[in-house]
Nucleic acid binder design. Structure first.
Length: 452
DNA sequence: TCTGGGGTCCTAGGACCC
DNA sequence: TCTGGGGTCCTAGGACCC
């Protein structure tokens, strides 16, 4: 694979776009299996095995039993008693994802990541260097396999959403043959003349943006397929779904999607939330957990060099009713102490007694953390500068790991170890874990969702 | 299917300003 | 003080995606 030269002008990309949607196959599980060749051929998932756990990713052997991501783990286990559960190792997936995105960048600078395992590539201007759209798609797929040992599926079209649907159609089928680099394996090109005949037979729920609620509304109009939606007058769609969503989906049903591939999109919020194996029932528990969440959020803000304007607390009660409370203090926030002060105030009048199953803290309105030393009013009041404390904590964590230091209020009953956030990625472990966390563990190397 | 955790985007009402 | 119209910001909630 030859690297793309520096000069690819945006001007050449304005008409007749060629867009690739690249989607890794069973990404998390595939990464795990590189380390565990002994499990190849067995049904394997990454996810939390606990009572409130869910499946994050399933390999094709597991899918053959009907197991899929977002399914509750209890149900997955029932469908496939031999299912192998692996706890997630997020840092591995992030690192692999970064390398894969770099591989994409060898073909075009216009790479828009959607998640760790998916991206859009606008290759309109890359065809003189790399050949036809199908040629480029095959080269991308082969390059990812050559560098990572991982397979992906590639959809090609002149619009984003058709490219995405095409990559899904190009996926290996559960129980089907294993992927190869053969000419037409794992790649589907939908030419402009074929868009409507490809699109219209699909279930309308396949469209990006049609979830359970929208599907229900469309079904009430007798819409089952994308073709049904296209035949409905736009007015009827708009009156049912609202102006924005209605016009957008109606246009999609006609194959129209002007959204460009946008590289380098900035993140807009950073947050942590956690569902508890046992509901929280008192103020002290809420206050302690808010501290834990704010500590985790502040730590990530520091790593990214960001500050936030608005803090939002989310509370989900045992009956699943969910509320949010937010506040924008007027000054950028960076520290655990500032975040937790606001977070606790936001829930001060909320009664935890019915049982709180989830708490979340997120920060939005992100901007660069100013490196100057303008003290906020808040900090000015404090005997010790909060920013300095936060910076010292962050430096220690950078050197010794996330669990090396933290608020004393988060020490567990032994008084020796910190209660940590972020291990239970896919739902709480089996019953409340008496299992301590090694305070010297490296980030992400905790007991994980399955440690229990 | 008794429902995770990371996010994005949209809507709607009210405060506030000109 | 029986009072318009446009714009922006803030807050709360919800749909949706991977």
């Amino acid at each position: 694979v030859t690297a793309l030269p520096d000069r690819v002008t945006a001007g050449a990309l304005t008409t007749g776009r060629t867009i690739l949607h690249v989607d890794m196959d069973a990404f998390f599980v595939s990464v795990e299996l590189l380390d565990r060749p002994d499990l190849v051929g067995q049904p394997v998932v990454v996810g939390g095995p606990g009572r409130r756990g869910v499946i994050a990713a399933a390999n094709y052997e597991a899918r053959r039993h009907g197991v899929h991501s977002a399914m509750s783990s209890v149900r997955a286990q029932a469908l496939c008693p031999d299912l192998v559960f692996l706890p997630g190792r997020f840092h591995l997936y992030s690192a692999a994802s970064l390398r894969i995105m770099e591989t994409f960048a060898q073909f075009t600078p216009l790479v828009e990541p959607i998640s760790l395992d998916e991206a859009f590539l606008d290759v309109t201007g890359a065809q003189r260097l790399f050949g036809s759209p199908a040629d480029i798609a095959r080269q991308v797929r082969a390059a990812v396999f050559a560098t990572e040992g991982l397979w992906c599926s590639v959809g090609v079209a002149s619009t984003k959403f058709v490219a995405k649907l095409a990559s899904r159609a190009a996926k290996p089928r559960p129980g089907g043959p294993a992927p190869t680099v053969d000419d037409d394996d794992g790649v589907l090109v939908v030419g402009d003349g074929e868009v409507l005949s490809f699109l219209h037979p699909l279930a309308v729920s396949e469209l990006w943006g049609v979830g359970p609620v929208t599907l229900g509304r469309l079904n009430r109009h007798g819409v089952e397929t994308v073709g049904d939606l296209a035949r409905l007058p736009v007015g009827a769609v708009v009156s049912s779904l609202g102006s924005s969503a209605g016009q957008h989906l109606h246009a999609l049903a006609h194959g129209i999607d002007p959204r460009p591939v946008v590289p380098g999109r900035r993140e807009k919020s950073v947050g942590h939330e956690q569902t508890y194996a046992e509901d929280l029932v008192d103020r002290a528990g809420m206050d302690r957990e808010l501290l834990r969440l704010c500590d985790a959020v502040a730590s990530r803000l520091a790593t990214k060099g960001l500050a936030g304007a608005t803090v939002t607390v989310k509370v989900r009660f045992s009956d699943f009713r969910t509320i949010t409370r937010s506040h924008s203090p007027g000054e950028p926030m960076t520290t655990t102490t500032t975040l937790v002060d606001h977070a606790r105030r936001l829930v001060a009048d909320i009664e935890p007694a019915p049982g709180v199953r989830l708490l979340g803290v997120s920060v939005s309105g992100l901007g660069p953390a100013d490196t100057g030393h303008q003290l906020s009013f808040d900090e000015f009041e404090q005997p010790t500068n909060r920013r300095e404390v936060q910076q010292t904590v962050d430096a220690i964590r950078h050197r010794w790991g996330q669990a090396a230091i933290g608020p004393a209020a988060l020490l567990d009953d032994s008084g020796l170890r910190l209660r940590r956030t972020g291990d239970a990625q896919w739902g709480p472990a089996l019953p409340p874990s008496p299992d301590p966390v090694d305070p010297m563990a490296t980030p992400g190397a905790g007991p994980g969702a399955g440690g229990g």
